[in-house]
Amino acid sequence: MVKLDDIKKECKSILEEGKVKYIVGYKRNNNYYMSIPAFIEKIEETDQLIWDPTCVYNLVRFLRDEKLRKERQKTPDTRPIGVIVKGCDSRAINVLLQEKFIKRENVYIIGVACEKSGVIEKKKLRKKFNEKNIKQIEFGKDNNFIITTEKGKTTISAEEILAERCIECNNNTPVIYDVLLGEKVERSLSEHFRSLEKFESISTEEKWNFWKKELDKCIRCYACRSVCPMCYCDECIADSISLAVKPDTTAEEKAQKIRWVEKSPVSSENFSYHLIRALHLAGRCIDCGECERVCPVDIPLRYLNKKMEKEASEQFGYTAGLDPEKPALVSDFKDDDPQDFII
């Protein structure tokens, strides 16, 4: 099992040596059982670090902020930043390297193996516990979680509250790291695409009704996009940045301007936004599940990305984030790619 002391020790030593500018890790939320992202700059702050099943965040997201910050500074500190990553998160780093968005020397990767467990899913937890009473959740022995409530400690089998993506995970050990904490453990908890099975047996109309109901809820807060480590486009198709309207812009010109997605949260625009996002993440999404976790109206966004992941894997033998040297899914082809559907 990963020892928190090992994480702290590693962080202390790299800060002491001045190897990194700061470290992105997890710390406790003062008023809540969940963790929150921590930005550790000083050695004494490393005591705030935690490692428990509430460390859901994909901290690779914050590499983008660091990149932007550096671009704005005249004489930036060019040292790398340290980032604590789980198996899934480490694949996100690989994708960013593959796309040359970051350089390997920009980041010091502290890999943490999930071994036989993973992180929690709040929705599942809420069904079993009153959230208000939960004080803390810890890793227990034998694939269990220990939940501390006002009444005392309860042990619960990890699978009961484990995030769906963790149950389906194939990469419980980071695939890229400077230092690895925890052990490489082989595990197969479940089928990799199990959550998609329920869609296979339903009709076209049922599929449509499901997605129509879900995507109509969308309020376009763009939390899914904002939290995603891959959504780093300077100009997102959903924003109007590239559509500057000048005083001499005529009505005609405005009309001719292409706007793929309008800001209005109506059905057709919500579909456009989410479908385009899913397609842009095809072959890039590493299933950290953050988009689904942050959605305030509980849209099961992960299924869209998972579907793309499944097709990439089954039709093209491609898995995102395993090898930064390989070409990306859509900038590559094979002569014998399947084409049965083409007339």
Partner: peptide, 25 residues
């Protein structure tokens, strides 16, 4: 071919009739 495969699969996944989107050589 690759890209259209993905679009086609996604459209079918969200419940668009597969006949509505086709590709040909």
């Amino acid at each position: 071919r690759r890209r259209i495969t993905l679009v086609k699969e996604l459209l079918e996944f969200i419940g668009i009739e597969p006949e509505r989107f086709q590709m040909s050589w």
